[in-house]
């Protein structure tokens, strides 16, 4: 199983291993494919569509699509970037994302993607949905205003923690992350040390009593766009 699979991303020859996804093989070769619902160590979900690439002209999610010999992948092109920008803009207008007072600001993957994609303002009208906040748990809170339904908490709790604290309920605009209890997060067996408590890419599931721990100017995405560490070969 050590045979390499050769394919091309934006004209660059990439060598992947059998069983790897496009996203993993690209990352190994120092090519960053933007992503949100993908997290190392979790089963890929393919739901946010931010990692969409064109494989031989067809849109595929890079985090779930296995590499195949000779495939021609479009990643960092105007067409694909425009598509990703639209997806991220929709995520911004579908929730209530108040970056100015969010503890996650500066370390938020959604915000960082918007920076990287050059979004100054979404072109879609803001929906200002009514969402709830669950502060019941002593160490962790859920602010559903910020939730983008990536499912990272769902998968982390189910597959890593073995607890199944979170899951999706409802459909379409009513879809939300529910907890495995009658109503409150406090009535689940979630522990602050669980993987699920730190899997959130945005500020929806946060640890209490952390607040604005890192000063502005020293946060993850203050100076370098998200993905720079991959492009610079540090990951």
């Amino acid at each position: 199983m050590s045979a390499t699979i050769e394919f091309v991303i934006d004209g660059k020859e990439i060598q992947g291993q059998p069983g790897q996804t496009i996203l993993e093989a690209a990352q190994q070769a120092g090519v960053y494919i933007p992503r949100l619902c993908y997290m190392k160590g979790l089963v890929p979900h393919g739901s946010c569509r931010v990692c969409t690439v064109l494989v031989n002209g067809r849109p595929q999610s890079a985090c779930t699509q296995p590499v195949a010999p000779g495939m021609v992948v479009e990643n960092n092109t105007e067409k694909v970037t425009a598509l990703r920008r639209n997806i991220v803009e929709m995520l911004f207008v579908e929730g209530n994302h108040f970056c100015m007072f969010c503890e996650k600001s500066g370390n938020c993957e959604l915000q960082a993607l918007a920076y990287r994609l050059g979004i100054a303002a979404p072109k879609y009208p803001y929906l200002f949905p009514t969402r709830d906040i669950d502060m019941s748990h002593p160490d962790v809170f859920i602010d559903r205003n910020r939730c983008i339904l990536c499912g990272r908490c769902v998968r982390a709790s189910r597959d890593v923690d073995g607890k199944h604290v979170f899951d999706f309920v409802g459909r379409g605009p009513h879809k939300r992350v529910a907890v495995n209890a009658e109503v409150r997060l406090a009535d689940t067996n979630l522990d602050v040390r669980d993987k699920a408590a730190e899997a959130c890419p945005v500020g929806a599931i946060m640890k209490k009593r952390v607040g604005y721990a890192v000063p502005i100017g020293q946060r993850l995405y203050d100076h370098k766009p998200i993905g720079s560490e991959i492009e610079n070969g540090k990951k």
Binding site: N96, H97, F98, M100, F101, A121, P129
Partner: peptide, 17 residues
């Protein structure tokens, strides 16, 4: 549009719900 309030409503928009 200068600033988040002009762009997305900002803190005053917290009353929107």
């Amino acid at each position: 549009s200068v600033g988040d309030c002009a762009i997305m409503g900002g803190i005053p928009a917290m009353r929107n719900g």
